[in-house]
Computed example of a mutant assay.
Amino acid sequence: MKKPLMATYWYTGRPVDQLFTQVFRSGSSYNETAWSDKDFDALLDRARRETDDARRRELYGEAQTFVMDKGGAMTPMFADRLVGISRKVRGYAEHGFEFDYLGIGLKGA
């Protein structure tokens, strides 16, 4: 967050509200572009309060369009990652990724 251009990687397995709030919400310490828009923040608040799943999905879709049209980030590519784990697998170790798949109860018996 000190250079005029940078590349970053955000694992997209997070829930949509967490991703938008951490990466794009005004004042977030993870908001790498320091982009701030009160209308976007209000849209996130509306989506978070919405109890109807279909309407909430629409609001988060609007938030995604908002970020694409007005946000401070650009996405030149998407990294794809697939992990499959079974209780039968032994000795599996992962390095360099933020999510600990082994720590969620798949270590085996």
Score class of each variant (00 low, 15 high):
Asp37Ser: 07
Arg55Ile: 06
Thr51Lys: 15
Phe66Ser: 05
Leu59Ala: 03
Gly72Met: 05
Leu106Ser: 03
Leu82Trp: 07
Arg46Gln: 13
Glu58Tyr: 03
Lys38Met: 09
Val67Phe: 03
Met74Cys: 09
Asp37Lys: 07
Met1Arg: 02
Phe78His: 08
Thr33Ser: 10
Ala63Cys: 06
Gly71Thr: 10
Lys3Leu: 10
Tyr60Trp: 08
Gly96Tyr: 03
Met1Cys: 02
Phe66Trp: 13
Gln18Thr: 09
Arg48Gly: 09
Asp41Ala: 12
Ala93Met: 07
Asp69Glu: 14
Asp45Ile: 11
Ala73Gly: 06
Asp100Ile: 00
Leu5Met: 11
Asp52His: 15
Gly108Glu: 14
Gly13Leu: 06
Tyr101Trp: 06
Asp45Thr: 14
Phe78Val: 15
Lys70Ile: 00
Gly71Glu: 00
Arg87Thr: 14
Arg49Ile: 01
Ile104His: 02
Ser36Asp: 11
Arg49Trp: 01
Asp52Lys: 14
Met1His: 05
Ala93Val: 08
Ala42Asp: 15
Leu5Ala: 13
Val23Glu: 11
Met1Ala: 04
Arg87Asn: 14
Leu43Arg: 05
Ser29Trp: 15
Ala7Leu: 12
Gln18His: 09
Phe24Met: 02
Trp35Gly: 02
Gly105Asp: 08
Leu59Thr: 00
Gly91Gln: 13
Ala42Thr: 09
Ile104Pro: 00
Arg14Ser: 04
Met6Trp: 13
Tyr11Met: 14
Val89Cys: 08
Asp80Arg: 07
Gly27Thr: 13
Gln22Leu: 04
Ala93Ile: 05
Phe99Ser: 07
Asn31Ile: 11
Asp41Ile: 11
Asp17Gln: 11
Tyr60Asn: 04
Arg56Asn: 04
Asp17Asn: 14
Val67Ala: 12
Thr65Arg: 07
Ser29Pro: 15
Tyr30Cys: 04
Ala63Val: 04
Ser28Pro: 02
Ser86Gly: 10
Arg90Glu: 14
Ile104Arg: 05
Gly105Asn: 06
Leu44Ser: 05
Lys3His: 12
Leu82Asp: 09
Ala34Gly: 12
Arg46Pro: 01
Gln18Trp: 08
Ala73Pro: 00
Gly91Met: 07
Thr65Lys: 08
Met77Gly: 06
Tyr92Val: 06
Asn31Tyr: 09
Val67Ser: 06
Gly61Met: 08
Gly91Arg: 07
Ser86Tyr: 10
Asp100Val: 00
Thr33Lys: 02
Lys107Thr: 13
Asp69Asn: 10
Met74Ala: 10
Gly13Asp: 05
Ala47Leu: 09
Arg25Ser: 11
Leu82Cys: 06
Phe24Asn: 00
Lys2Cys: 03
Thr8His: 04
Asp39Phe: 10
Met68Pro: 02
Asp52Trp: 05
Glu62Met: 06
Arg81Tyr: 05
Gln18Arg: 12
Ala34His: 15
Arg48Leu: 12
Phe40Leu: 09
Ser86Ile: 07
Lys3Ile: 10
Val83Gln: 06
Tyr30Arg: 06
Ser28Asn: 10
Met74Ser: 13
Trp35Glu: 01
Arg56Ser: 02
Asp52Asn: 15
Met68Thr: 12
Leu43Lys: 10
Asp52Phe: 05
Gly103Met: 01
Glu98His: 08
Lys2Met: 02
Ser86Glu: 13
